[in-house]
Design a protein around this nucleic acid. Structure first.
Lengths: 347, 347
DNA sequence: CTGTAAAGAGTAACCGGTTACAACGTCCAA
DNA sequence: TTGGACGTTGTAACCGGTTACTCTTTACAG
């Protein structure tokens, strides 16, 4: 109802017969307003259907109650989980989320960050493959910022990351403990930080525990199809292997399907392991062994750090949080060993 | 580098020795500025590391280049797909997304919408179970708004929805065509619009095609667990059934697992069908027959409509788009029938 | 040589709120 | 009665940009 564009504070003030200052004070519940005056203002608010203009408000208050979130192009699961984690914490503090769209290119990243100025109180950024120096140029040092999955050492910014190296190391260790002699790794995209760390973890574990200097590594790009491709290479190339460790679950899924087509049994002929624990993992048949990453915690932890900064604390790289993934043993590696640890099982 | 808080246009103007107006024009590339003047301004911009304050800018321009997105608490897959769809289109037009957090409660919905005022140029709202009248109170009639999965008839707002009724009808039809005599439906949450429409589609199809007046319907809530529960009821209660149509895939997944535990074979003893086509569906063993809903298109279509409105077009309920889900026949209903229609098959 | 148009640059109002400061009125003590 | 303290309300500046309008200056036609 009412006019074309919305009522402003001035309109309310006029309607209530008071000044804008008084109207503002009444609306914001500041003490120094008489009861009848406040009532008059409130009546005008109701009548005109007034809603404060958050844009204008944040200009003077120098506070937007919004945090900017800049993520790269993410595969569904990961994206939604991280946002969910952020939102969970943000919501409790009445914060809104402004999603910047940086689709790949470095240039767009800069633009996305610039567009945030004056619209957010803080920033959550996940710079996929950006040099720290460049990042420094883009970021406003006065704007509280937390990095996701990225250690920008020299910048001294707080960050939250997953211990990919450790996770890959432990998974490889587990495969070897299961009796695998020839473990093959399917790597992720070359430029990708997570992928590289996982590969290093694998290589190191193979060297230190398995005593293998140059383990076999097949290329991949985190996609299901690239996992299938690796499987074909494996089978046709006669590459000897009794276990495959894919850098993520997605590829493991493609791998398993392709192995099945080639007549190989999992885990009979070959064991398979992934990384991430996507929801699909437990539903596969056999179910997929993997390293569980609580992606949502990545987001919620980062958001909590940012909130602390907004409250005035000064956080730096020293406050970084490293999340350790958890080993989940399922069917593709032969199932959990009943070594008397876990209780509650049927005799 | 530089001072504590960022440089303003005034600072730039002073540094370049021109007025703010000229600085503004130079920065925005308006024609009426001499080359040397523009150069001087640009130099100052570089030197001071100036980035325009989007908040202030949008106040005068009356344009924020942002659309507000208000969604209920959504299960992961759905949420991320819808956002992805929206972002895809928004990004092309250089728009940003402001996520409002309305976690369930009606009161929060109102707050979320109100908080958007002055921060967005338009709104994309998915009101889960809100009465149209209430919605009318909350929404600003002057703000272009598109509804998701919601037909607010009397409000005359454009919306995008999935034809749940039609989809359920067609799926039921398909099950009957497969020879099922006793089809049981597992319903979704009572208050949920989609769930109700799907149930109606099922009931009508059973009546018109199957000649069954009161088909068996088991309660559910869209969760995996409720699907499993339904399976137990089915088996223990000796409810005669040769096919089950779950109102969504999630429940179908739980159902299948529980049926397997009970020693029932799918599709041998009993056929199973779902709705949504979540990524998991094709990976199950046997793979799940379902109605494919392109959730991302729900988002992208809505965003495209909103863009048209922002360009000045006037859209109403008459411009609604109804997305028709597609029947995907897979293993849980016995696999596609090779009835000579689809080409390209091996002889 | 003068009149005028066009282009470049400046002044100040404005977007819609918030808030420092001043003005006003009331009540009470001296 | 008067002065001071206190509490309510109004005036106006301000947040950081944009832009209508005005003032100069320069170029060019008459």
């Amino acid at each position: 109802m009412g006019g074309h564009s919305m009522a402003t504070l001035r309109d309310v003030a006029r309607e209530a017969g008071v000044s804008v200052a008084t109207a503002s004070r009444a609306i914001n519940g500041l003490g120094n307003v008489t009861a009848p005056t406040r009532a008059a203002v409130m009546a005008a608010v109701k009548k005109l259907n007034f809603v404060p203009h958050s844009g204008a408000r944040s200009l003077t208050r120098r506070k937007t109650d919004t945090v900017g979130v800049i993520l790269p192009d993410l595969f569904g699961e990961f994206f939604s989980e991280i946002i969910r984690g952020i939102d969970l914490v943000a919501h409790e503090s009445g914060m809104h989320l402004l999603l910047g769209n940086m689709h790949g290119s470095t240039h767009e990243t800069a633009a996305a960050i610039a567009a945030m100025r004056g619209r957010v109180d803080g920033l959550l950024v996940m710079p996929p493959d950006l040099k720290p120096e460049l990042l420094a140029d883009y970021l406003d040092p006065a704007l509280p910022t937390v990095l996701l999955n990225y250690d920008a050492g020299p910048l001294d910014l707080p960050f939250v990351a997953v211990d990919n190296y450790q996770g890959a190391y432990r998974m490889t260790e587990a495969l070897l403990a299961r009796g695998a002699k020839q473990v093959v790794h399917i790597a992720g995209p070359k430029h990708n930080r997570d992928a590289r760390d996982r590969q290093r973890g694998f290589t190191d574990a193979m060297a230190k525990i398995g005593g293998v200097r140059t383990p076999a590594i097949l290329p991949g790009d985190f996609s299901e199809e690239s996992g299938a491709q690796a499987a074909r290479l494996l089978v046709q190339g006669q590459l000897p292997a009794d276990a495959v460790f894919a850098a993520n679950d997605q590829m493991a899924v493609g791998l398993i399907a392709a192995l099945a087509e080639a007549g190989k049994s999992v885990p009979g002929d070959i064991m398979v392991a992934g990384f991430d624990d996507i929801p699909l993992a437990r539903h596969l048949n056999p179910s997929l062994s993997t390293m569980q990453v609580h992606i949502d915690r990545l987001g919620s932890t980062a958001m909590m750090m940012l909130l602390r900064m907004l409250r005035g604390e000064t956080l730096g790289a020293a406050n970084a949080t490293i999340l350790t993934p958890e080993l989940i043993v399922r069917g593709t590696t032969g199932g959990p060993i009943a070594d008397g640890v876990a209780g509650g099982g049927q005799p």
